[in-house]
Design a protein around this nucleic acid. Structure first.
Length: 382
DNA sequence: TCTGGGGTCCTAGGACCC
DNA sequence: TCTGGGGTCCTAGGACCC
């Protein structure tokens, strides 16, 4: 059975939510961005984009380009609220809704025709209902798979609707630049450009064997399929997280060893809070360290058994940090702590040395009074 | 212009085992 | 005494996504 996949992409989502909540900002160059000196732009309104502002750009640079811009810090809790209302609308048309981020989702409309009418009608309805009921502009794409649906909504931006039927896929894709394809980033695009390949049509003319020799068996195969609009990946409503992490870029580099250790501990506790929320245990602990010159190191270790013990995770994180050689004269720009190899908390191993009631009590206090209420002395790590 | 934070997936090398 | 070879696990790094 041919599939019908819908892709909904909110236009300049964070900035649009700010304009929704503060109508006096409408039409102005609204820029949702992390604070200087090291923040970057998360979303710029279309009025701000006229000044050349793009997401990912350092906030400092955006201020130079548009001094009159209205710079706002992100309010993720609020964006999450709005995102849920949008997801609820999408959920009326299919049980299979896959949120990609706060502002984007796929909906599998295959086989929903008897209940909701033809997919094209559903696409039109969604495209009308979201602005009407949520007050925000969205772009909608409909196609035979996720790849095509997403590219269709890109083509419809801002505020449009585009349907690409199966027989139109190739002519729709052919003129697009290769970097529009999902999974073709700056590096791959540059390598392709060196070989004279700029558009999807160019890419489609490269034999599979050649692509494999350039990009490896998997990479080559993937490019070959992308160029033909082939994408069998399913719309997956709930995906179990495979890893959790927290990282922070500091406004000023850290040099003090004690402060670094205390930050690693704080980040570890935040990660453990999330383990608890998700009711999972982790068997791998990872850290990330970025120095002043932006060189970045990761270290990870596999534990003998899965855990959500805050002291254990913190001790591992600090231990991993000691395995990173600090380049002379370099301060620490970023620290991150993460966990992976997650298993459901029901699989908690029988206690050998650690009384699980201790961790329960720890979480309970932090849940009630917040992360600041209970932190641990240096002695806890030794 | 000095470059966020939270994720996923892939590759490659070394250890280890049969 | 001129080095087998394949599978799996673990780790580090990198590309990419929003």
């Amino acid at each position: 059975m041919p599939r019908w996949i819908l892709h909904v992409d909110m236009d300049a989502f964070y900035a649009s939510v700010e304009e929704l909540d503060r109508p006096e900002l409408r039409g102005k160059p609204v820029i949702v961005a992390g604070p200087e000196p090291r923040g970057v732009v998360a979303t710029a309104s279309y009025a701000a984009r006229k000044f050349g502002i793009r997401s990912g750009m350092p906030t400092a640079q955006a201020k130079r380009l548009c001094p009159q811009g209205i710079f706002l810090p992100p309010r993720f809790d609020r964006y999450e609220e709005v995102a849920q209302r949008i997801r609820a609308i999408l959920g009326e048309y299919s049980p299979i809704v896959e949120p990609i981020s706060l502002d984007e989702a796929f909906v599998d409309l295959t086989g929903t025709e008897l209940l909701h009418g033809p997919p094209e009608k559903v696409a039109e309805e969604v495209h009308l209902r979201i602005p009407k009921e949520v007050g925000l502009s969205c772009s909608v794409g409909l196609g035979p798979n996720k790849l095509v649906a997403k590219l269709a909504s890109d083509a419809a931006k801002p505020g449009g609707l585009k349907v690409v039927r199966p027989e139109e896929v190739q002519s729709f894709l052919d003129p697009l630049p290769v970097e529009d394809l999902w999974g073709v980033g700056p590096k791959t695009a540059a390598r392709l450009r060196e070989k004279g390949i700029r558009t999807v049509r160019d890419l489609r003319e490269v034999p599979l064997g050649l692509l494999r020799s350039w990009f490896g068996p998997k990479g080559g195969e993937a490019l070959w399929q992308l160029a033909r609009g082939i994408d069998d990946s399913p719309v997956t409503p709930v995906r179990e997280a495979k890893s959790l992490s927290h990282e922070v870029t500091y406004p000023e580099d850290l040099f003090d060893q004690k402060q670094i250790v205390s930050e690693l501990r704080r980040l570890s506790f935040l990660v453990v809070d999330r383990l608890h929320e998700e009711h999972v245990l982790a068997q791998t602990v990872q850290i990330k360290v970025r120095f002043s010159d932006f060189t970045t190191y990761t270290r990870q270790t596999k534990l003998p058994e899965p855990t959500d013990h805050p002291l254990l995770v913190a001790a591992e994180a600090v231990g991993l940090f000691s395995r990173v050689e600090i380049p002379p004269g370099q301060g620490v720009r970023l620290l991150g702590v993460g966990v992976a190899d997650l298993v459901p908390a029901e699989f908690r191993p029988l206690p050998l040395f650690v009384d699980p009631n201790i961790t329960d009590a720890f979480h309970e206090v932090r849940r009630k009074f917040g992360p600041e209420a209970l932190s641990l002395g240096q002695a806890g790590l030794e």
